[in-house]
Design a protein around this nucleic acid. Structure first.
Lengths: 227, 227
DNA sequence: TTATAAGTATGAGAAATCTCATAGTTGAGG
DNA sequence: CCTCAACTATGAGATTTCTCATACTTATAA
């Protein structure tokens, strides 16, 4: 995680992402910009939360670390979205979940310590956060519906497209199986089918997307109804 | 839905439910109390939303009415909880979902029209609603996890206990199947197993719970991790 | 270096779940 | 009274998905 000190870049992100509309005050003064390299963590479970992040570019994934130490994939995020807003609202000092960058990510960041009181008293911000929660909730309900409604192959196709990076898919099978709610064994079956059908090609440590169209077609319905 | 005009009863609910802590002003003046008979609707999709409800007693269930006219069971609610808060935040005039009383319900109710602006500008209220959303979100994530993680029998047991009324279970199979994400056919299989195992006894138009302990034990894990 | 754990891989049989076909029952509306 | 739609019910075979057993590989820690 590396701070970017170019004010032009920052301002550009602030304006194009709608960031400044999230507050009743002008946040520009206090806002920093961070670049998070692919696979690095934006926030990590248990670590103190020092910034309220606002993802403006990139893709990220949210993990839950369970009591037994296992990690479980919860959801994916694309811009614009807040990170750390749940902890801010609950005034919980530590991060509840881990958010990891799938691709390179850029996040605007507002220092929480100085601004917490102000934010929690700012009707504009609170209203925006509420709206954000409402939309997130609709989305969760829809997604939950989809998980029940669509067969694994379609959901996996959708998942591969979501997490692939430069045409390469390289998630940990254990976690994916957990995320999709299927057994490890079955995930491998379905992946093997994709290979047999020519959708994927297995390489050393990852799969290469060989038939983007087919995967996109398979995922189509799932994505449709998630919108 | 019937208004209850007994100020003592109202005040009692207001205090014991924590209702008055949800606002920066004293809501007592504007608050009404409604009794909703079992099976009646608290709010109905598409109808204008005139009150922000706060469920203080009873059990209710949330439906989504799909484009094709089918209804789909989304979730269940127990006190204390808001009803209509999503529409209020989005300033959407119509109810998005339908909420139906499972048992007799009592709801405190705040007229939206006069108070909308005030509510959307009230940091205390907004903060409380945010907290509510955060908790709801945690719960949804957990539930979604459970749906993937637990076998149908356990989830069905949990469901039966949740929706049963005076020891009688009488939900529509079609809707339940949809809610649990299984086929109608399979639901009947599992119900038949419950009958065979002596957990349930089939009667005319419903099932009677015959072995509460067994069902509770089956549902135990599911409920545990939903908390 | 050697354990040890985590990740990957595959087979085989069992269990869960689905689809389809078929029918009886019930309630609302004409 | 009749008809239609919705709900309930059950069987049979197909498909999906799971469990378990078994290995091989790789990274990490002692």
């Amino acid at each position: 995680m590396q701070e970017i000190d170019n004010q032009d870049v920052i301002n550009n992100f602030i304006v194009t992402s709608g960031y400044d509309e999230q507050f009743s005050f002008d946040p520009q003064q206090d806002t920093k910009l961070f670049h998070i390299a692919s696979n690095d963590f934006i926030v990590k479970t248990g670590a103190p939360l020092t910034y309220l992040f606002y993802l403006v570019k990139g893709k990220a994934k949210l993990y839950d670390v369970l009591a037994n130490g296992k990690v479980s994939l919860i959801d994916f995020f694309t811009p614009p979205c807040f990170i750390g807003e749940m902890e801010l609202i609950e005034q919980r000092p530590e991060t509840a979940f881990s958010m990891q960058a799938i691709t390179d990510c850029w996040c605007l960041a507002l220092p929480i310590r100085q601004l917490q009181e102000r934010l929690l008293d700012d009707p504009v911000f609170l209203r925006q956060i509420c709206l954000y929660f409402v939309h997130k909730n609709y989305r969760t309900v829809k997604t939950a519906g989809n998980n029940a409604a669509f067969p694994v192959a379609q959901r996996l196709a959708s998942f591969i497209l979501l997490t692939a990076h430069d045409g390469l898919y390289s998630e940990k099978h254990v976690q994916v199986a957990e995320y999709l709610g299927i057994s490890y064994r079955h995930l491998l079956y379905v992946l093997a089918q994709f290979v047999k059908n020519g959708y994927l090609v297995k390489q050393q440590h990852h799969y290469k997307i060989a038939n983007l169209d087919a995967l996109t077609r398979l995922a189509h319905d799932v994505n449709e109804s998630t919108n």
